[in-house]
Simulated scan of single mutants.
Amino acid sequence: MTGPDRPRRMTVQSPLGPLTITEEEGAITALAWAEGGAEDTPLLRDAAQQLEAYFAGDRTDFELPLRPAGSAFQKQVCAAMAAIPFGDTLTYGEIARALNAPPQAVGQACGGNPIPILIPCHRVLGRNGLGGFSGGTGVETKIWLLKHERAGGLLI
């Protein structure tokens, strides 16, 4: 794809390794643990600055246009995760009850979150523990993010 509507990517360095942010049609559509782009747009610059402030401990929320791909249910789960405040957590079961869905389906949708950190799937826990995490180095990355946010007095 060429032209202004093609995906644009910028890689930023973080304490968790390189993160590549993808912008499409004026919204952030993905964040991945990888090297993958050096494009420069106002939105990608803004996202990079907000992530830098988050990792520095100077930002607790993000003000970016986000457009996660996925089914209607995936988008509902992403909206529920995005509503979890910095430092708080919910369980898969709590989100499932709110959406009238099975916890396993919520877990699968969390695992398919295309914009981790910005849509904070790391704030969703299993009933008896951390649950999984598909970004970075897996559960170790989730633990790092929760400690960074001092989430709910979580003892990790």
Rank of each mutant, 00 (worst) to 15 (best):
V12I: 15
Q13S: 09
L16E: 13
L16Y: 06
L19S: 01
T20M: 05
I21W: 05
I21K: 08
E23S: 11
G26P: 06
T29V: 15
T29S: 09
T29K: 06
A30F: 08
A30W: 04
A32V: 13
A34E: 15
E35L: 09
E39M: 01
T41H: 00
R45T: 13
R45P: 00
D46A: 14
L51P: 00
E52A: 15
E52V: 01
A53H: 07
Y54L: 03
F55L: 10
F55T: 11
R59V: 00
T60L: 03
D61W: 02
D61T: 13
F62Q: 12
L64V: 01
L66E: 14
G70F: 10
K75D: 02
A79N: 05
M81I: 03
I84T: 04
T89K: 01
T89A: 09
T91P: 09
T91K: 11
G93M: 10
G93I: 04
E94P: 06
Q108C: 02
Q108G: 11
C110S: 06
G111H: 09
L118P: 02
I119R: 10
C121A: 13
H122D: 11
R123E: 11
V124T: 02
N128K: 14
N128A: 14
N128W: 05
N128H: 15
F133D: 00
T137D: 15
G138I: 04
E140R: 10
T141E: 08
K142D: 13
I143A: 10
I143G: 02
L145I: 04
K147G: 14
R150Q: 14
R150S: 10
A151R: 06
